Computed example of a mutant assay.
Amino acid sequence: MALQRDEVVRTALRLLNEVGIDGLTTRRLARELGVQSPALYWHFKNKRELLDLMAEAMTAEALPPAREPVPEEWPQWLAEDARAKRRALLAYRDGARVHAGTLPTAGELPAVEAQLSALCRAGLRPRTALRLLLTIDRYLMGWVTEEQAWSQDAAERAQPAFPDEALRDLPLLREAADTLRMTDHDADFEYGLQVLIEGFRSAIAREKASGPGDPLA
């Protein structure tokens, strides 16, 4: 039976959890599938396209493509989407590194258009609406990259990060030590996400008041 694209992507995701992104080579993937490397290029042009497809598969269940965002509820669904995407990326080893730098696939573009449509009906212009989506997405990617690296390092670290004696003469850092040590990833992620969303409330208000043109261009 001919090799199917879905099978290639599923196998790549399984290998990702076993060997990480640095160990995921097309040669290793081809060997796992029982084919020669050139056979893979019927399904993707290069490793970058494979990573795009893997990123799409990671978030497909968390972010169903048919969802219809409600303009008036944009803060809620933006936050819910970010949380769902974070969970999806954390479910895979190096999930954020796989997703970083990817472009939306053709199958994902209608969902992006639906989000832009809702944000524009809420008061943003297309350029600013896309900036909002990209800003949140890049915050998410950076956050999860650091979160996964921190978790991996913590498992290998001989002693807790920033021991109490290192903070003895640093009262402000000592007071905020839990945040410094990233003891509550969820709360810290949520804080940054809400700061971003509140900032875009101001952008929407400015655009509604400014009339034609793009004040943020």
Rank of each mutant, 00 (worst) to 15 (best):
18 E>V: 10
19 V>G: 05
20 G>W: 01
20 G>H: 03
23 G>M: 04
23 G>W: 01
23 G>F: 01
25 T>N: 06
25 T>E: 11
26 T>L: 10
27 R>C: 06
27 R>E: 13
27 R>Q: 14
30 A>Y: 01
30 A>T: 01
31 R>P: 00
35 V>R: 15
43 H>K: 05
43 H>G: 05
44 F>V: 02
45 K>M: 05
46 N>H: 12
46 N>W: 01
49 E>S: 06
49 E>T: 10
51 L>I: 00
52 D>F: 08
53 L>R: 11
56 E>W: 08
57 A>V: 02
59 T>N: 06
59 T>Y: 00
61 E>Q: 14
62 A>Y: 00
64 P>M: 06
65 P>Y: 01
67 R>M: 15
67 R>P: 06
68 E>W: 08
69 P>Q: 11
70 V>F: 06
72 E>R: 14
73 E>I: 00
74 W>C: 03
74 W>T: 05
74 W>N: 05
76 Q>L: 13
77 W>F: 05
80 E>F: 00
80 E>Q: 15
81 D>W: 11
82 A>H: 03
83 R>N: 00
84 A>F: 03
88 A>S: 06
91 A>L: 06
93 R>C: 03
96 A>C: 01
97 R>L: 15
97 R>I: 01
101 G>S: 03
106 A>M: 11
107 G>R: 13
110 P>Y: 07
110 P>D: 07
113 E>Q: 10
123 G>Y: 07
126 P>S: 04
126 P>C: 04
131 R>G: 13
133 L>K: 03
137 D>R: 14
138 R>S: 12
138 R>N: 15
139 Y>P: 05
141 M>Q: 11
142 G>R: 07
145 T>H: 07
147 E>S: 07
147 E>F: 02
148 Q>N: 03
149 A>T: 10
